[in-house]
Amino acid sequence: MIRKLLTIALSGTFAFSAHGADYDATTQAYIDQLTSMGLPAPKENQLVHIPPTMADLEAADIHPELKKVIRKGYDLFTNTQQLRGEYVFNNMNCSSCHLGEGRMPFSAPIWPAAVTLPGYRGKNGHVNNLEERIAGCFTYSMNGKPLEYGSDNMLALSAYHQWLATGVEMYPKQPVYGRGFPAPERPAELSYDNGQKLYEENCAICHSEDGSGLRVDNQTVFPATWGDMSNNWGAGIVRLFTAAGFIKNNMPLGQPNSLTDQEAWDIAFYMDSQERPQDPRYTGDIKETLEKFGPTFHKHSLYGQAREKDGEILGDHDNTGEKPFLKPDSIRPRTFD
């Protein structure tokens, strides 16, 4: 039986990219497994790709040096805390939000970035490559400083992303199945109180009532959902729809899609109404920051708004958490004029 399992794992060595309705048996089994977890089936014309696993890496016919680099990238992705104090200033690992080692659909699988970049990003208004995309998650989600472009660790981390995309064409024309954190439909009303109640019933056992999560032995077991050890106000997950999509499809851990759409949105509303480190793009004035980044980003978050519960203006502070600076110098415009 064990041997049989291994064979199944190895048969994914070459990644599949199927389209249309007739999937091969492996892809169909993959889709069936996901839909049995309550995740939606691929829509017509969506690209379905099964990223290779670490077991596939061991079996792959590539240079041993490259294997080493990809293994290092995997290690950095799943234990990003090894960069704590230099590049990471909160309790997150990359895999804290990108579940299943960055391979799970509906948990922002990371490989699509490798085949769609360089590309234009609305968030910073210029063309980004894979390294700059990774730098983005360091800057905001990790409340940190990006690895230097071209450095050993950046090479390893991007190699892991690219290797997961093995077999997918560059700039695919089809939309990617399960990309990002697709949000359930937004209900008419959102309730802070109901969100709080649901959070305490379903989430606090791991993330704690005050959102601080749990660390054991200097390692993160349960990441912080808000507060100094969480992502900052510039991170994608402070957008309500992103948080709702993340929660609906991934939480509570091991029980995706167990919450209703209304419940996922209420919890997202409650969670994203709590304080966290300042947005690195902060100009020193919340109104001004909101004017600059409201139209592209903060119109989806509660940043700069009065919290329903107590009228507290969210994000109106200079707190950068454990990070001894506000803005890493990676945040800069690029123009080709």
Binding site: A9, Q33, C206, D217, G254
Partner: peptide, 15 residues
């Protein structure tokens, strides 16, 4: 994850 079996250590902690 191909069977959505989350690692034991993600709840039962380091080691």
């Amino acid at each position: 994850w191909s069977k959505y079996i989350v690692s034991c250590k993600s709840c039962h902690g380091p080691g």
